[in-house]
């Protein structure tokens, strides 16, 4: 069944139609969440929150973009809400948020990469991803969002603008700044 038909059924309250839609893009949304937050448990929560919110508000889906793009937008917002919550929690604990980025001597405090050698391809991929997440984690959330959407999700400037509500010019300059920051963290991580 085509996506449009599924969407129509889901809007009419067909739960199975919605689950079919969710299953078609669940991996995509989960990986987006994972790249954004760098934590598999959190990524699962964020992705599921996005689907639940989409389910509740399927009636407002205007169908001017694919269902997955709509849910992706919801997932990015869900992640941003998580970040805001974590920032508040850090300040509540009187813990500087900068500690999560980099210490004074440049040593990275948060290392998601496992020290154990990968046993197979899956674990190898996971380790690779963890290393990338470790660098992304050092970026400001706005910069992280741009790197994930542009370089990891390979979305166009226009798609990112539509997803974030920013204009294309702002997206372009943010991407340039985010890449510069990412490059510096990447070089430092490599011991440069």
């Amino acid at each position: 069944m085509e996506e449009k038909q599924l969407v129509k059924l889901a809007k009419d309250g067909d739960r199975r139609a919605f689950e079919a839609l969710a299953a078609s893009c669940a991996k995509e949304i989960y990986n987006l969440a994972l790249r954004l937050c760098g934590d598999r448990h959190k990524a699962q929560d964020i992705a599921q929150d996005a689907f639940v919110n989409a389910y509740k508000s399927i009636g407002s889906f205007r169908e001017d973009s694919p269902f997955s793009a709509w849910v992706r937008r919801i997932a990015v917002n869900a992640w941003k809400n998580t970040v805001r919550y974590e920032i508040r929690r850090y300040f509540t604990k009187h813990d500087s948020i900068d500690d999560n980025y980099e210490s004074d001597d440049g040593e990275m405090k948060k290392q998601y990469a496992s020290s154990d050698p990968p046993a197979d391809k899956v674990l190898e991929d996971r380790q690779k991803n963890d290393e990338i997440h470790a660098v992304l984690e050092l970026l400001h959330p706005d910069a992280r969002e741009m790197i994930v959407l542009r370089d990891m999700e390979e979305k166009s400037y226009e798609e990112i603008a539509a997803m974030t509500g920013l204009n294309t010019g702002t997206v372009k300059s943010r991407i340039a700044r985010a890449r510069e920051a990412f490059k510096q963290k990447f070089i430092k991580m490599q011991g440069g």
């Binding site: 739960r15 689950e19 299953a23 699962q44 599921q48 689907f51 991929d125 690779k128 990891m152 390979e154």
Partner: peptide, 26 residues
């Protein structure tokens, strides 16, 4: 190099219970 590094990430499979958990939440 940095961009290439960011792009080198691999899509991971869904957690095993993802869809079942989602169904419960729905």
């Amino acid at each position: 190099n940095a961009v290439q590094y960011a792009k080198s990430g691999r899509a991971e499979d869904l957690p095993v219970n993802f869809l079942a958990t989602l169904s419960k939440r729905l």
